[in-house]
């Protein structure tokens, strides 16, 4: 049965789009049929991260307004035949999204895909609430710092009250994904520890993605990090998280960079 999963955070810049692309690619690599939907109308990014920006013809708003058919707007990934993108419109804003339009698109996508990953915009306004509206599951992307954690807490409260599932008395299954984690800085007390974050959010952990240059490198070449360098520490962490989403039990660990000798000597750290 198709699962609608929203990737959300409240706060901007924590890695929602990166995580959507990486998880989507990781799920597709494991044979699942996946569509990633960009809900960030007006500030679309997911097409860039997936390297599909030059193939966008129609977008989510066109489909909502009936200008284009869903099949016309869906873009198939060139590397993974199981991965599709439904891009957002860059020329419109979030007001162009309607509850009814989103409902019908999600219902349509449910019949075609195993996973529907909704990349939520930052904030708690229309775009974010509509991205989570029809979700069955949610990945809350959180950075190990207080403002991100508090915003995530707020988003979890909204997932428990503003979604269709919550309104019908069910629960949206929630997972916390900690990104940009630096174990060295956490050990020195410069970052919130995993325990602190989980204690505050009282929500199960999906994975810990280490801070890494590989993430930036991958997005610069328009490739999900799980595709670009599957052996890198963040890619392994995302792949583990995707396996957990599929119901597998995978031991929780913080993958570390395999530092070269030069890196060690120069004390180079991912910034």
């Amino acid at each position: 049965m198709a699962k609608v999963l929203v990737v959300t955070s409240g706060k901007g810049g924590v890695g929602k789009t990166t995580s959507t692309a990486a998880l989507g690619a990781a799920l597709a690599q494991r044979g699942e049929k996946v569509v990633v939907v960009d809900f960030d109308v007006g500030l679309r990014n997911l097409d860039l991260i997936l390297g599909a920006e030059r193939r966008v013809v129609f977008d989510l708003i066109n489909v909502v307004q009936g200008v284009a058919k869903l099949s016309q707007a869906l873009i198939r990934d060139k590397r993974l035949e199981n991965l599709w993108l439904l891009p957002a419109s860059q020329t419109r804003d979030k007001d162009a999204l309607t509850d009814e339009g989103v409902r019908s698109i999600i219902a349509d996508l449910r019949t075609k895909f195993d996973w529907i990953l909704c990349d939520s915009p930052a904030g708690i306004e229309r775009g974010a609430t509509l991205a989570m509206r029809y979700a069955d599951e949610a990945v809350i992307v959180t950075n190990p710092e207080v403002s991100s954690v508090r915003d995530s807490d707020r988003i979890i409260g909204m997932l428990d009250s503003k979604t269709v599932k919550a309104e019908s008395g069910e629960r949206v299954e929630k997972h916390v994904l900690i990104t940009r984690y630096d174990s060295g800085r956490a050990a020195r007390g410069e970052m919130l520890s995993i325990e602190d974050i989980l204690e505050i959010l009282a929500t199960p952990l999906l994975g810990i993605i280490p801070e890494s240059q590989d993430v930036l490198r991958a997005s610069n070449v328009g490739s999900p990090v799980t595709l670009n360098n599957a052996a890198s520490a963040p890619a392994r962490a995302y792949i583990d998280a995707a396996r957990r989403l599929m119901g597998e039990t995978v031991e929780m660990m913080v993958p570390t960079e395999r530092k070269g000798l030069m890196d060690r000597l120069l004390g180079r750290r991912a910034a």
Binding site: R150, D153, R154
Partner: peptide, 23 residues
Amino acid sequence: RSGQSIVFTEGDVTVLGSVGSGA
């Protein structure tokens, strides 16, 4: 959660979990 406001003027309020920052 953060952002939630619980108003109960009739009496006591008991919370089994935590009350988030901003709640």
